Simulated scan of single mutants.
Amino acid sequence: MTDVVRLDAVSKVYGKGRAAVAALREVTVGVPRGTFTAVMGPSGSGKSTFLHCAAGLDVPTSGSVRLSGTELSGMNETRLTELRRERIGFVFQMFNLVPALTVTENISLPLELAGARTDRAWLAEIIRRVGLEGRARHLPAQLSGGQQQRVALARALVTRPDVVFGDEPTGALDTMTARDVLGLLREVVSELGQTVVMVTHDPIAASYADKVLFLADGRIVDSVTSPTADGIARRMTGLGAWTR
């Protein structure tokens, strides 16, 4: 399978001299198209830095990051912003919805910002898939937390991105609601062929993925395919931490 995201020898160092901290160390990994990858590790392992570099939100100190073959290094911030808007979807722990916009308007916002035409059939399909048909005209304040995260997921999908990055996307949800959202992420991979990369500290959340990458001290130290929550929990215990 073709790698949608590819990191080659990526390092990220913050600060200089004795104050320098290496958040990533020579990370090389590919994320195949149409797969669900979870990223886990102890606090300070480099999970967030990995996501930020892979998504073009931060620039590596060295190494190469490619999105569907497009090299991100050397792009100025304007071009990176355009690339993120057009080819990457984001789902964060906080829903980041615009309070004054309806569900439909929040979902369509990336298209509006890009000056792109809204495909009404695709928009309706996305709203249906996330189970919000009866809520399309509601404002965020009229929705539960789980419903708001469904809006955020639909917004991430509406541009048909190359990849969706999730940063603790279920961290603010109760257990049952979190499982509903994880089920939706699994569905968009299995049924729509979407590519998802999710940072999480939760073994149950990670068990929805096809593959789990384990980070420690800025390096990928292990990976597991067809993961189970118990197996992930044991591996995390071996790494010595549970927190982000």
Rank of each mutant, 00 (worst) to 15 (best):
T37F: 11
A38M: 09
V39D: 03
V39G: 09
M40R: 05
M40W: 07
G41C: 06
S43V: 12
G46F: 10
S48D: 14
T49C: 08
H52D: 15
C53A: 08
A54F: 01
A54P: 01
A54I: 01
A54V: 02
A55P: 03
A55I: 07
D58N: 14
D58R: 04
G63L: 12
S64R: 11
S68R: 08
T70L: 14
S73D: 13
G74K: 07
G74Y: 09
M75L: 15
N76C: 07
N76Q: 08
E77R: 03
T78I: 09
R79F: 09
T81Q: 08
T81M: 05
E82I: 04
R87T: 09
G89I: 06
V91K: 06
M94C: 08
F95P: 11
N96Q: 13
V98I: 14
A100G: 06
L101T: 06
L101N: 08
T102M: 03
T104P: 00
I107P: 00
P110W: 06
P110T: 06
L111H: 04
A114K: 05
G115D: 04
G115V: 01
R117G: 14
T118Q: 00
D119M: 00
R120W: 01
A121M: 06
W122F: 05
L123M: 07
E125I: 03
E125D: 15
I126Y: 00
R128C: 02
V130N: 05
G131C: 12
L132Q: 11
L132M: 11
G134H: 07
G134R: 08
R135A: 02
R135I: 01
R135Q: 11
R137P: 05
A141P: 02
S144Y: 10
Q147D: 12
V151Q: 06
A152I: 07
A156I: 10
L157N: 10
V158S: 00
